[in-house]
Amino acid sequence: MLDANPEGYTTADGRKIGGVLMEMRNITLRFGGVKAITDISFDIREGEIRAIIGPNGAGKSSMLNVISGFYVPQEGEVWFHGQRRAPMKPYEVARQGIARTFQNIALFDGMSVLDNIMTGRLTMMKTGLFSQALWWGRAQAEETEHREKVERIIDFLEIQSIRKTPVGRLPYGLKKRVELARALAAEPKLLLLDEPMAGMNVEEKEDMSRFILDVNDEFGTTIALIEHDMGVVMDLSDRVVVMDYGKKIGDGTPDEVRANQAVIDAYLGVAHD
């Protein structure tokens, strides 16, 4: 098994994957009497693209919400960078270097594309209220400095032409891209993508897949994603976690998962005999 090696491994296409970045240990999450997640453990390694798949209601989004701090699991531990993470608020998780996108886009509709992406850098902007009010020295320099970083991401995702358009006016596919840009602007160590290709046509899916691979390749960002399109998942990801009814039923490379009988049963159903 690949995971056994603490130093990491090399993928089929020759990328070096590092040590463990995030580890979930025996996570159990309940809502009242309903168990959304039951005793799940897996790890995410530096530089890899890790997919979480499973049928509807399997608990994938709940898992992502545990990682990003929305839900605090009743049992289990979250380890990040070799340290156990105490229960914390989502904005504290963001400051640790975890960024995410949402299944149903969560952009700020009243602001321009540029302002939306700039919000991704808010945790890094440090000047005080007074200096900002006077737009003097440090505040202005800081604005320009972060603007340059954001413009690089705008170039990267090819959205230069809509920079100043209010987000509310954009079509769905572009909104998804802007949301990715906002998450990237935070220069995250771990990027969580909740169904980045939901509701897209084939071309948009291809674009998005290319961006995800490029982000991983150029910035070395570790990515964990949830996706329903099996073709996309198998092509993109290095390792896959499969969930069903809140339990983990499979974990490994796409090929291993494809051959896993439990996974096949979960997706195709089991014959009654």
Partner: peptide
Amino acid sequence: RNLTRGATGRKWMAIRDMDIAAEIIGVNP
């Protein structure tokens, strides 16, 4: 004008437009 176009204004508008998303990008509500 300076406050609303800079970092502080973006925090405010993020809270106004979608407070959950604002929190997830690191704004202390």
